[in-house]
Nucleic acid binder design. Structure first.
Length: 219
DNA sequence: TCATTAAGCATCT
DNA sequence: AGATGCTTAATGA
């Protein structure tokens, strides 16, 4: 899941060394091409990181929950990244100097920061692999499969994954259109393979789900 | 295969 | 009542 990645909770002990800011839902934390020169650390709430494409469309990249950080210390040319508060959120900004100060007090944080970067890099490496290997609709099935593997619970003959996931979110992650996501979910429901509820995903037929990886899915 | 658009329904706040 | 989310259908690339 492109969500928070490895949370650097240790950093919360040093927020007095940074600058606290609050954002209300919908407010922009970082405008496209804005030069901030600071690291953004999420204390509470949730921020959405997205990229603005050349033709002006917004492409979701990942969402940042508690203790996630977004590095805006360095700027890349035309990276067109945008960060918007998905909920009322509190963040803490650290400049390079402030960050060095934190590191000087607690070297373990450097390791946590590395781990955070590692999990981010690992996710996007896998994502590019997925995109090369599978079609969008198969990626959708894969997402459900992976979710089940990583956090599914087996009871009463079915697998249950407790997660709040809207169709729109799924479409952002997989790159499918949200209408297409809806249609695939509809056909999966009809085939009694999988069903998505508000707070959880129930998988009735794991074998069939796996089978569909190879064949693709008609909908 | 998948995206786009539009329209209608359901549910939540 | 308005916002948000889901579904279906038509059409086009």
């Amino acid at each position: 899941m492109p969500d928070t990645f490895y949370p650097v909770s240790r950093l919360k002990n040093y927020i007095h060394l940074g600058t606290k800011r609050s954002y209300s839902k919908g407010q922009a934390v970082l405008l496209p091409d804005e030069v901030l020169g600071k690291m953004i650390f999420v204390l509470s709430g949730r921020l959405n990181v997205s990229k603005i494409t050349d033709d002006g469309r917004e492409k979701f990249v990942y969402s940042a929950g508690q203790y996630c950080f977004m590095d805006r210390l360095f700027t890349f040319e035309n990276d067109h990244m945008q960060i918007v508060a998905a909920e009322d959120s509190q963040v803490c900004l650290f400049s390079k100097e402030q960050l060095l100060n934190v590191f000087a007090q607690d070297l373990e944080i450097v390791i946590d920061v590395l781990r955070h970067y590692d999990s981010k890099a690992y996710y996007f490496l896998n994502l590019s692999n997925e995109i090369n290997l599978y079609s969008p609709s198969v990626r959708l099935l894969h997402l459900f499969y992976e979710l089940c593997q990583s956090q599914g619970k087996y009871n009463n003959d079915v697998w249950e994954v407790e997660i709040q996931l809207t169709n729109r979110k799924i479409s952002e992650i997989t790159g499918l259109h949200f209408v297409t996501v809806s249609k695939i979910l509809g056909s999966l429901k009809k085939e009694n393979i999988l069903r998505k509820r508000k707070n959880k995903i129930i998988i009735y037929d794991m074998e069939k789900l796996k089978e569909l990886f190879e064949e693709g899915i008609p909908y």
